[in-house]
Write a protein that binds this DNA or RNA. Structure first.
Lengths: 338, 338
DNA sequence: GACAAGACTGTGAGCGTTAACAATAGGTCA
DNA sequence: TGACCTATTGTTAACGCTCACAGTCTTGTC
């Protein structure tokens, strides 16, 4: 398989010499050009194999102006949601023959997003997926952007770019209606941080469901997605006697709520029902197992690549699509009839 | 800021013309070459700004033979450990001015690893980090590899490449000794899948600690890292009357164990003490809060980049380092004196 | 005031590939 | 048979940058 260490790797010209053809013919074989005689092709392939030749994608990218690399900008890939989405993106991209270059942001202010996009644009990516669940990120996308096809995951109403998202409001509605259908008078809500579009969508769905049922919406409790913030919200809720149902904006916070309830002797679901959001793998084993709203992160990742590739390869780099993935309710033991 | 859509982006020659200098002088300014007159530099920078010029990194990579991109091969970036490690890698790499290209593997057989490495090598990465916690992956690394500096995270004894890892055996020892110090006669173990080096390291540490204390090591229960497998192990353990202490090989399985114990009315920590591994953010809010072994994934990620860059930039591409990060015990409410 | 040693700038080649065009061979059709 | 097509191959020129080398312009020194 060639490639003696220390010697410079073979290039197309070496293969051409070995096979007794021109470098262009080698290029044709590599690019599966139809007009190459079978015999010639065989000679070239043999030479490639003999020398252990691998084509230089950097040189190729220089002349074709396509790197076959997609950029992904994401916020905190340590969280289950973004991690799963990025995973789906990566799988779909690789299946389509694209590389993935990742930038994980710590803070998601406009400057950070701008830097990340510039950074990726410099590298010559053919397209960018921004997992931009925050309003600020989505806004940053709206003004800046330069000429690379872009799709935003959870990008809100942004009409400058294509968007793929889960219908968060629908999720909030499903959770709330589930609780109401169990006979609860009203449903409390532990919400996510206010800059997050997902948090707002869930609040909106929750509020809409309550309104439609003619119920009063209590003041939502603030959280920041962390179990700790859920725990603190849970302590507040535990001290209120009229709380019988809580919709928590993600499973991690729901875990904190459950913990606080356990400490205070508040039985779930006997005295209070709890619904989470995300369906992380752990939630089935919470105590009690958590009723939650399932988001198909994998589908979101796959779809975002599909949309992006349509823009890149379909020759409509500025096309704008909007693709909404529906969430679903997963019923478990943390909710019960009042 | 220049860059009229539709027109081809400006290149170095355009900047040179605008500034009235040669393209080489522009290159010098960009590369911070010392011998450029301040006035000239200013003219060039002004022209760059005016035209909105951005240097083409692909062309640069072609001639320098350095892409300033590092490849990362990882297995299931949905899990907290790999996700956190990759996050640390990404942050450290970007801080050092490198891009990160990611390949997430579904299955980690030799062919998969080989493909991933080839794929990245084709792309022209300057170095590769393989997050290879499985024995098979580590072995795959050992034979194949071609000429790109490589570092393995959790790569076992592989002596073909540099390795950065957490001292898993030490973690197992810490967990076990903690339980023994609380007066438990022996410690049961729910282990991870047998192909995983981390699982084996933890088993080894557990066994060693028991041996040193002169205790019998019970047969470990098999798990696959998932909460469900922990749950099943937990059901078995709940039915044994002589179990008072369990060391579970990760926090997710520990959650499953706790769930099973709760269902069977086994009090933790009153009747059985439980220790996990990883210190995921949720574990503090399990019921009860989980005593666990903390791994500094972030440090592992950072160190792996440091080691890799030393190989790449230090001119010793085949140097082999071994860097071990110590774990630590985080005491919480799931363990108590017998 | 001439000369060497720097400081600064420009010229040309080449990185490894693909695109555009040219050239050759073999055959078809009137 | 000769013009004319088509299949196949080769030649040359980019792509946008950096490297090596060759200039030119300042200084400082005696």
């Amino acid at each position: 398989m060639g490639s003696i260490p220390g010697r410079r790797p073979p290039v197309m010209a070496d293969v051409a010499r070995e096979a007794g053809v021109s470098h262009q013919t080698v290029s044709r074989v590599l690019n599966e050009h139809p007009n190459v005689r079978g015999e010639t092709r065989a000679k070239v392939l043999e030479a490639i194999d003999k020398l252990g030749y691998r084509r230089n994608l950097v040189a190729r990218a220089l002349v074709t102006r396509h790197s076959r690399t997609l950029g992904v900008v994401s916020f905190d890939t340590t969280l289950y949601g973004p991690a799963s989405t990025v995973y789906g993106i990566e799988q779909a991209a690789r299946a389509a023959g694209y590389f993935i270059s990742i930038v994980s942001l710590k803070s998601i202010d406009r400057a950070g997003v701008r830097d990340a996009l510039d950074y990726l644009a410099d590298q010559g990516v053919d397209g960018i997926v921004v997992v931009a669940p925050q309003r600020s990120a989505a806004q940053a996308l709206t003004d800046l952007h330069l000429g690379v096809p872009t799709v935003a995951v959870e990008g809100g109403e942004a009409d400058e770019v294509s968007v793929v998202c889960v219908d968060q409001a629908e999720g909030g509605r499903l959770a709330t209606e589930h609780l109401l259908s169990l006979g609860h008078e009203t449903v409390w809500h532990v919400r996510g941080p206010s800059d997050w579009l997902e948090a707002e969508g869930r609040v909106a769905g929750w509020r809409a469901a309550l309104e439609r049922a003619g119920r009063e919406a209590p003041e939502p409790l603030a959280g920041d997605w962390s179990p700790r913030s859920g725990y603190e919200a849970g302590r507040s809720l535990a001290s209120m006697t009229d709380v019988t149902a809580v919709f928590v904006a993600n499973d991690q916070m729901a875990l904190g709520v459950l913990r606080a309830f356990t400490e205070r002797g508040v039985q779930v679901p006997d005295r209070v029902s709890v619904v989470g959001f995300d369906d992380v793998p752990e939630s089935e084993f919470f105590s009690p197992p958590l009723t939650t709203i399932r988001q198909d992160f994998d589908a979101v990742g796959r779809h975002s690549i599909e949309v992006l590739l349509r823009q890149i390869e379909g020759g409509e780099p500025h096309a704008r699509e909007r693709l909404v993935v529906p969430p679903s309710l997963v019923g478990r033991a943390s909710t019960a009839r009042i």
